[in-house]
Write a protein that binds this DNA or RNA. Structure first.
Lengths: 147, 147
DNA sequence: CGAATCTGGTTGCATGATGCAACCAGTGAT
DNA sequence: ATCACTGGTTGCATCATGCAACCAGATTCG
């Protein structure tokens, strides 16, 4: 049985997961964010089966997160590049990274990190209200709105 | 063949997805964040098979994201509550929500939204460096650090 | 108190998704 | 001209998911 789709769900979180919640999808976006562009490089970096990579890339292209572009080295091959829609998954990746750093590494373990190119300092994500006040899970209230 | 585990991966994003990247897991956390606590309420809200819900909840408890606590109404039943580790997935959920709101709804479509309880205004997540400057995907550089 | 119902699951089964290996056409390098 | 690399596709075995049936203990109803 195919697993359920959340495409028609009213909740944006569910729709997002429907689009990029499959195994590997967000890791492909993560790799793309740090500059990986070619099929074989994604495969080497991620170590996933080629058929699955193929399926995932097709879906990412189909939903406008990535696009196929001519290779940057002038060869006849093509590369995969993030669209604006794909680049805006950046906060999702950073939020996952931040949580993983906090809770899933033991002391002394090596880990990869991203830094601000300019300052060399790590990133943070914060949830804020309009005024720049930092919010936590206790501050939320649920409503339905029209787009 | 069982799908690959990222438990030993150096990348925090991969480890996070290993922990909460399965179908339904983040939606369970989303529901828990807005106050759902009981098995049957999760099932009603999500519409997933009971055996899968059972499996997911067990895993979430096993990895310290949720815990079983006595029912708040004094009955003999037990409820599921988020731990601190679970509540700190809040920015991940908000980031997914924000992206979904931007890209996955047509004009005029109804959608659920979360608001700041106090001000009634929507949340935003922002990626910042230490100084409060807002960053995008172009500002990042990848390094390996020791914990 | 006894029966019905609700809660929180478990078990079996059919089907879809994933990983692996083999294969293949077009491109590029020698 | 040949040989390897790139970017896949196809087939197969196994695992995960959804669905339905079932079940034990707690609660409610009469």
């Amino acid at each position: 049985m195919r697993h359920k789709s959340f495409k028609a769900n009213r909740c944006p979180v569910a729709r997002s997961l429907d689009t990029i919640g499959e195994w590997w999808s967000l890791l492909i976006v993560r790799d793309a964010l740090v500059g990986i562009r070619r099929f074989s490089d994604f495969q080497k970096s991620l170590g996933l089966a080629k058929n699955v990579l193929s399926t995932r890339l097709k879906k990412l292209v189909a939903c406008g997160i990535m696009e196929q572009v001519p290779a940057s080295d002038g060869s006849a091959y093509r590369e995969y590049a993030l669209t604006q829609k794909g680049r805006e998954l950046f906060p999702v990746i950073v939020a996952l990274r931040q949580w993983g750093e906090s809770y899933l590494f033991s002391r002394g373990e090596k880990r990869l990190q991203v830094l601000d190119k300019r300052t060399g300092k790590p990133f943070r994500v914060e949830v804020q209200n309009g005024k720049g006040k930092i919010l936590t899970a206790n501050d939320l209230e649920l409503v339905t709105v029209m787009n």
